[in-house]
Amino acid sequence: MLYPDTVEAEILVHKPWFVATMFGAVFAIFLAFNLTSTSFGELMRPVIGEPSQSGLYGRFAIAFVIALLFVLNVVLIGFASLRVQIAIVWFELLLLFLAFFATFHLSLPFIWEKLPFLISQGVVTTLYVSAISIVIASLIAILGAVAKLSTNGFAYAIASFYTSFFRGLPLLMQVYLIYLGLPQLGFVVGAVPAGILALSLCYGAYMTEIFRSGIQSIDRGQWEASRSMGFGFSLTMRRIILPQALPVIIPPTGNQFISMLKDSSLVSVIGVWELMFLARTLGQKTFQHMEMLISASAIYWMLSICLELIQSRIERHYARSKVR
């Protein structure tokens, strides 16, 4: 959170001009859509009569009611405490999304039927591919960062070529290159190892830069103190610099993990039966792929939320040594 001022500003959503603007904007937007044929129009029947014949009056009335409800909602939320505000807004946005998904008329029994397989095959594959890739990418990142900061010409050249190459190529391309290209050199890699390799190399390159900047953010004095006690390079790195760089590294790395979780879906092109592959495949025969795609999205989202929670936990852990 930003550093709050000690003088409280007037709550924005209670300022008359803001409330008026908000009302006007929402009203205008909903006036632009004809909602008379929707279930909301049906709800308004007592006021506007037969919805399909209400014409402009119906549209006007519906937009007015929606704008009024919206503004009322926002103004009321404005009175709540911060935590309650966050909870309510999350809840409402979630409801809106559910309402949006409901418009697809999804077959819930089909989802229930396929969910076990989506999880036992898809989620498991996605998770282990991502997890292994994350570990390898982190190792590569440490090596790469050290190489990029070193005065050794070879190490620097290799590391900077590596980061430039793998950050510059689309991940899909890398998957193809590794899966189709490595056999040319005599290495026949399976689909899963090829996918893991591609993900590790690509994310290793991004994380190299994160680790490098993290390492560089540590004060010179730490190196000097460590050196003055006779610590060697690797000891200094492992015990002094990296542990301090971690709090700097973790937030962007968490982002990388989350985005890798979803990018792992790219290995489906080489036939790995992970979550995305199944999402596109399972509903195919019966043309119920919307069900599968939305289920997979929900699963991805939940996995991401788990990662976010883990990240914030770790961040809190490292904040320990900063508390007075």
Binding site: G221, E224, A225, S228, P243, Q244, S321
Partner: peptide, 22 residues
């Protein structure tokens, strides 16, 4: 053997340079 020298020579810095994570 620079480590032999350094472990035998204590140094105290202007800005302390304690290891903040320990």
């Amino acid at each position: 053997n620079v480590a032999d020298v350094r472990s035998n020579v204590g140094m105290v810095f202007q800005h302390f340079n304690l290891f903040p994570h320990m």
